[in-house]
Write a protein that binds this DNA or RNA. Sequence first.
DNA 1: CTTGGTGTATGCCTACACTAATACACCATT
DNA 2: AATGGTGTATTAGTGTAGGCATACACCAAG
Lengths: 128, 128
Amino acid sequence: MLIVIDRHSGQPVYRQLLEQVRYQAASGILAPGDELPSTRALSARLGLNPMTVSKAYGLLEREGVVERRPGRALVIKARAAGDLEDERLEELRKALAGTAQTVRQLGVSPEKALELFADLLKRPEESE
Amino acid sequence: MLIVIDRHSGQPVYRQLLEQVRYQAASGILAPGDELPSTRALSARLGLNPMTVSKAYGLLEREGVVERRPGRALVIKARAAGDLEDERLEELRKALAGTAQTVRQLGVSPEKALELFADLLKRPEESE
DNA sequence: CTTGGTGTATGCCTACACTAATACACCATT
DNA sequence: AATGGTGTATTAGTGTAGGCATACACCAAG
């Protein structure tokens, strides 16, 4: 499992970890049933405290991305197709609602905003 | 001028102020030439420190929303149509780029994201 | 030039988020 | 039950952003 932590990105470490695992699970890089490294193993590899990893893992479990098996490593949760779709869309909705408000506050026309958004969605390089 | 500050919203006060003035200027509620209350007057009315108001005013000036007249009150800046458009769009672009990244991380299809976004832009009630 | 207004630079204080150290509870395996 | 693994509750340390008090520089009007 490839995880890259950038301590100077301004983003909290636990969130970087969370997002990378979530993305990899969503995109299929991590398949259902795949095991995640233990908190200690991963924290050692990344030079972090186990608690920081645990925080990310705990949130991933709450999101339903991962399944807890007491005494054993976490695994990517198997799920009926579209099972998580609802939660994903809900999270997406929150993000978009905030952005929509920004659009209004800036006094930008919805059309222009949509156009720009469509544009950005096409260009993956636009990451931070 | 109607400004409402919610200290429990989690949003910084100076930012609430900034956004409300910016929105009112963009939407025409505040017309070019309209004067803003002095930092002391507004801070007294809202129960804030003048510095907090000044912070918002300073940012508004940098954005070009407002014009400074030394010794006198700030005024909403007159401008050629679309004069501020560039900076606005730049700010919008930043917001949208972040959201676009979220879309990718969630593994949601661009089409669905756009659809949802268009939906949210139509409903003003979706504010906080 | 004095007065009463303007905005704000500087520095401090507080609250909060993030990270980490420690210590604990749990489980699988032997 | 002993052991070596798991995750994490609790607590403490650290950095930073937001807000405020103070004090200053400036200007218009008298």
